[in-house]
Design a protein around this nucleic acid. Structure first.
Lengths: 219, 219
DNA sequence: TATTAATTTGCACTCACTGCAAGTTCATCT
DNA sequence: AGATGAACTTGCAGTGAGTGCAAATTAATA
């Protein structure tokens, strides 16, 4: 054991990264080719030249491979929350983070799989969407916690959770718009959604506390 | 074929409803007893006294049986949207509908499975939550369409979608709060979330349009 | 009662996913 | 280099979800 911090470049580490990458690449490619629900784990493993059993050493669900999320992304987003400019308001922070993520995606995938293809994939396969929701839920919890800490809110406070939830919805709706054939860019659509949320979403909202007995409907 | 409108009370219809009910009841009971991920379709079918194959004639996924959603609920909600008071603002309408749904649940389940148990179930099983979200997504689309029509928005407009999305988030976060041991009622928690959304969620939100090049982070 | 249509069921099958034990590859220490 | 142990891969056997098909049962109708 060296006193020096070990450079993270063992052959083992490298091979693992390569295998993981080969699997996600194959999974995505095949999903696009044949439709996400018509791809088998066997095909993916085959294409990545590992055994099926090995596939499941890397991913607990077929869908995780197709989604191919980089675990560093969450860490990066968390860091961005913590390192956001001092006076910046929380929803603004979320907006900036989303914008940066979109930028990153565009850069990385300029010559590879376009964002819109992934969106299509998500929308077309309920299975995929379900797993995406599961994975995102954990991220959202952590983001909300980090944001709450920054805001000086007590842990468990609903506000940061709602802010993160609104962010999620902004992105989701923007993706739907996009897929439905809007000619505006995803970034523009997201921004539009953020503005709607920020402005209050419904200026005429009735803030009267509602007492369940004073409303009447005949059921 | 009678000229009279056929009363919808054939033996066939009745048996189908009974079977469906037996299945959801068994599924819910077993899920609560053994944990939603430790119940097999075979057990559920056994308990409802039908074959496994028949189970899958009723539900395409195990989770759907556990969730046991009443297809009439959506129709009811849609009707409530359409029949909402003339001047009522859209987010207010959603708030009222949620309030009524909560009331209904309380009435129906007073002596049966409590809401909190179902919430627990949902939160404990990622699978279940995911399927729930997927199923709800369709409902949300229809609700947004109905709400949009009422608002005179063009079809596909993001506003009604965001309003429905905010409603979903309000309920979800309220459920989390509840589960995390808040002593306020679910209704109160939901109302609180609605208010936060209505007030704009972040008064200090920076509405400056962001140009991706004028922001700097070192990556 | 005979006919027809809807429902149930059994059977065979594919595929996702898991535990276990044996085999292989890499890192480390001497 | 060679021995040792840990990490990684793989095969195998098994559970359980979910589907298609065709035969059997049951309800509705003439």
């Amino acid at each position: 054991m060296q006193a020096e911090e070990s450079p993270p470049t063992g052959r083992r580490e490298r091979k693992k990264r390569e295998t993981r990458l080969a699997l996600t690449a194959a999974a995505l490619r095949l999903a696009l080719e044949k439709g996400p629900d018509n791809v088998t784990v066997e095909e993916i493993s085959e294409a990545a030249d590992v055994s099926v059993r090995t596939f499941f050493n890397y991913f607990s669900h077929k869908e995780h491979a197709i989604l191919g999320r980089d675990p560093d992304d969450l860490a990066l987003a968390l860091r961005r929350v913590r390192e956001a400019p001092a006076g910046q308001s929380p929803f603004t922070t979320m907006r900036m983070i989303v914008a940066k993520v979109l930028d990153d995606l565009e850069d990385v995938e300029k010559h590879e799989t376009a964002i819109s293809q992934r969106i299509d994939l998500l929308m077309r396969s309920p299975n995929l969407l379900a797993q995406f929701v599961v994975l995102s839920a954990e991220d959202e919890r952590e983001l909300a916690a980090a944001l709450g800490a920054r805001m000086g809110e007590p842990p468990g406070s609903p506000r940061p959770k709602l802010i993160v939830g609104a962010t999620t919805m902004a992105v989701r709706v923007a993706m739907e718009q996009r897929r439905a054939g809007s000619d505006r860019s995803l970034r523009q659509l997201v921004d539009e959604a953020f503005l709607l949320f920020a402005d209050g979403l419904d200026p005429a909202f009735d803030k009267t506390s509602l007492d369940r007995t004073d409303q009447e409907g005949q059921e």
